[in-house]
Write a protein that binds this DNA or RNA. Structure first.
Lengths: 344, 344
DNA sequence: ATGAAAGCGCTAACAA
DNA sequence: TTGTTAGCGCTTTCAT
C-alpha cells in the first residue's frame, strides 16, 4: 500500500544501471571494486556515473553493506594548536583510503553506559579513535565488546583489552629535558603535572623523577605542582607555589601551554626567564618558537600521531596486522628559555 | 531465499518494542518525538531502551527517514589555532541539537563536478558549512540545486544564490587598525594580502584603503604585498619588498600568522618592532598576546563564527527563519607592536 | 493512542 | 562475467 514520499530528485544506482545497460549489482561491483567486471563494462558504468553525477547514498550503503566508510574521533575540548595538527593528521590518512571523519569534542566526563549515551554508535562508524580522558573505561570496554574497532591515542586501553595505542615517548622526552635542565646547572627543578589521571603527564613525571634520581638529586614533593596542561591553571598553581615560599631554579611545565602560564606568573613576580628561573615545556607547539624567550621543549610528532592512529584503525578494520603499541619518538629542542647568558 | 549475514549482536528496534510490549512504530515515535504517545507507554519504552542499551542504527534512520542528523564542515588545510576555535564553535552548537559533525579538510582545489567528487553528498549530510576557497562556485551551486542546505563561512556564495553567509566585520576592523597606525604617526603603511581571491583579505584591503583615503594619505601600490595568511609566505614576500628597497614605517599583516612572519623578517633585517616598524595583525590568535612584542591586532570572534554558522545551518534545515548575512563585530586590541616608546 | 506493513537505496548471496 | 532479488533496520502512512 505504498504511499511513499518518493525522493524524486536523487540519481540512484538503477539510473546508472539503466544508462550503462547493466544490472545494479554490476554497478555496485564497479563502485566497490568487488567481484569481477570486464574492462569494457566497467568503463561504461563509470561513464554513466560521471554523466549522471551519481553519488551513492551513504546511509543505504551503510545499511545494506557492512561498512559506513566513516571513522569517529573523540577529543576533549579543542583548546590549542595541538588539536589542529592532530585532526589534520587523521584527515590526511583517511581520505586517500576512502573514509570520512566524524568528530566528537567531549569536554565533560561522558559515558556510553549511563545517562544520555554519546552518539558514538549512532552513526555506526566503522571504528573509533579515542583521545580523551572524558570517556570512561567502561564505555570503551562496552564498545570493544560490540566489536567496534578502537584505537587509543595518548591513553592506554582499559586493563586486559586488546586495543592498540599510540603514544609519544613521554618518559624519555621528559627525562631528556630534565637532564638538560640539570646540565644547565639547575638542581631545584619543579614539575607541573597535567590533568588528574592523564597518562602523558604520568609518564612525563616518571621521566622527571628518573632524571633526578640519575643525577642524585633528591625528590622534593613540594616542587610538584598540579596543573592541567593549560595556561590558566598553570598561572594559578605556580602563584600558589611561589606565595607559599617554594624556591626553585627551573620548571618543567608539563606541556607548552602550561609553560606560557608559567611565563606570565614569573613575570608577575618579577622573575626573569631564564636568568632567575629556567622554563621547559613539552609538545613544541607552533607558538613556542615565537614566545619570548623562545621555549625549550620536547618536540612531539603530533600530526604523525593522528596519522598513525588513523592508519592503525584502518588496518584493524581491514583485518591487517597491527602493532599493539606505537611509540613515537620525541626530540629535545633547546631554545633560550633554559640558556642562561644567552638570552637576548 | 534469504541467506543473509544476520547481524546477530545488535539490539534492534523490535527488541525494544517486544520488551516494552509495543510496536516498532511506537518506539520510533518515542525516539523521534513524533506523533502522540501516552506518558505511560513512553516511560515503558524509554525503560526498555536503557535496559537494552539500544542505540538506533544511524544508516537505517538515514535511509528510512529524511535526515541523517549529520552536518558537514569543509575546511582548508588546518594550520593555525584559528581552526581549533572554529571547529569547537560548530561542535558546541550542534550536539545539543542532536547533530554530529562530519569534517573535511580540503587543502587543494576540489570540485563536485569534475574529477573524483568529494565525498560530500556521499554521506547525505543534512547540510554543509563551507569554509574554504578550495571548493569552486560551480560545486556549491550544484549542491545548492540538489536542495542541500548550505551556509558560507567567511566567504560569499556564488552570484545569485540565496545562501546565508557568516562574515567578520573585516572592512571596519581593518579600517580601525589602520586608523590606529596612522594616529600613532605612521604614514607609509604596508598591507600584506591574504590568498588570491580570498574575501576576508579583499575586505580588509578595502578597509585599509579607506583609512588611508580618510587621512589623505596617497595609496602606493608598492606597499601592497601578496601574502597568503601564513608566516612562511609573509617572510618571503616581505624580504622581497625590503630587498627591492621599499620603505615603510608600519605593516598591517593581513592576519596574525602573517604578522609572525613579518616579525621574523624584520628581525633578520635588524629592524625593531615597533621602533623601526610598527606591526599589526588580524584575528587575535591565541599566541598573539604571547609573542614578543605582543601584537596589536583586531580581535575576531572565531569560536562564535563557527557557532553562528552551525546555528544558521540548523535553522535552515529545520525550516526556521534565517538572516541572509551575519556580520560579527570585531574589536581593536592594542598591544606593544604599534606603541612606540612603550616597548619593554 | 497504537499497530501493520511498505519501502528508503543500496549490497551480496545465489543462480545462470 | 553478469543478473535477480532478499533484506539491512529503521520511519511513516494508513487503518484502527
Amino acid at each position: 500500500m505504498s504511499v511513499r514520499r518518493t525522493n524524486s530528485q536523487r540519481v540512484r544506482i538503477d539510473d546508472v544501471a539503466r544508462k550503462a545497460g547493466v544490472s545494479t549489482a554490476t554497478v555496485s561491483r564497479v563502485i566497490n571494486g568487488t567481484g569481477t567486471v570486464s574492462v569494457a563494462t566497467k568503463e561504461r558504468v563509470n561513464q554513466a556515473i560521471s554523466d549522471l553525477k551519481f553519488v551513492a547514498h551513504g546511509s543505504a550503503r551503510g545499511l545494506a553493506g557492512t561498512k559506513t566508510h566513516t571513522l569517529g574521533l573523540v577529543l576533549p575540548g579543542l583548546t590549542t594548536f595541538f588539536f589542529t595538527a592532530l585532526i589534520q593528521g587523521v584527515n590526511d590518512c583517511i581520505y586517500d583510503r576512502g573514509y570520512s571523519l566524524l568528530m566528537y569534542s567531549v569536554s565533560t566526563p561522558a559515558s556510553m553506559t549511563s545517562g544520555k549515551p554519546l552518539p558514538l554508535g549512532e552513526h555506526n562508524t566503522d571504528g573509533l579513535i579515542v583521545f580523551t580522558d572524558f570517556l570512561d573505561d567502561y564505555s570503551i570496554q562496552y564498545m570493544h565488546e560490540q566489536n567496534l574497532p578502537i584505537v587509543m591515542l595518548h591513553r592506554s586501553p582499559p586493563e586486559g583489552l586488546d586495543i592498540p595505542k599510540i603514544m609519544f615517548e613521554n618518559e624519555k622526552g621528559a627525562f631528556d629535558i630534565v637532564e638538560h635542565l640539570i646540565q644547565m646547572g639547575n638542581r631545584r627543578i619543579a614539575y607541573l603535572k597535567g590533568p588528574e589521571g592523564n597518562e602523558d603527564s604520568r609518564q612525563r613525571e616518571l621521566g622527571y623523577k628518573r632524571a633526578l634520581a640519575a643525577n642524585n638529586i633528591p625528590l622534593d614533593d613540594s616542587l610538584i605542582g598540579r596543573g592541567n596542561f593549560a595556561s590558566g591553571r598553570a598561572r594559578n598553581e605556580l602563584e600558589s607555589m611561589l606565595e607559599s615560599g617554594v624556591k626553585f631554579d627551573a620548571i618543567f611545565a608539563g606541556n607548552d601551554d602550561a609553560a606560557v602560564g608559567v611565563y606570565e606568573t614569573l613575570q608577575k613576580f618579577n622573575l626573569r626567564v631564564p636568568e632567575d628561573v629556567a622554563v621547559a615545556g613539552f609538545d613544541d607547539d607552533y607558538m613556542s618558537q615565537y614566545i619570548s624567550p623562545p621555549l625549550t621543549t620536547v618536540k612531539a610528532p603530533v600530526h604523525r600521531s593522528g596519522f598513525e592512529a588513523a592508519s592503525t584503525l584502518l588496518d584493524l578494520i581491514e583485518g591487517n596486522e597491527t602493532s599493539s603499541e606505537v611509540r613515537l619518538n620525541t626530540e629535545l629542542v633547546i631554545r633560550e628559555s633554559t640558556q642562561r647568558g644567552k638570552h637576548v
